[in-house]
């Protein structure tokens, strides 16, 4: 029983923490900021990815 209560308490705490940080946008930042992706530009035409 203790394990079950501990699971629920920890799970809800984790959800609450993730919801709190998620509300303020943590985890939502673009990962490529401050990096130049110019070398990767050129679109799918140049890289031959177009169907």
């Amino acid at each position: 029983m203790i394990l079950r209560v501990a699971f629920i308490v920890l799970a809800l705490a984790a959800i609450g923490g993730a919801a709190y940080t998620g509300y303020y946008g943590r985890g939502g930042e673009s990962s490529d900021l401050d990096k130049s992706i110019r070398a990767g530009s050129g679109g799918a035409v140049l890289t031959g990815r177009v169907k």
Binding site: A19, Y23, G25, R26
Partner: peptide, 11 residues
């Protein structure tokens, strides 16, 4: 005023 569901979806 945007939010992120990243950590919740990971959870």
């Amino acid at each position: 005023g945007l939010s992120s569901g990243f950590y919740l979806l990971l959870l």
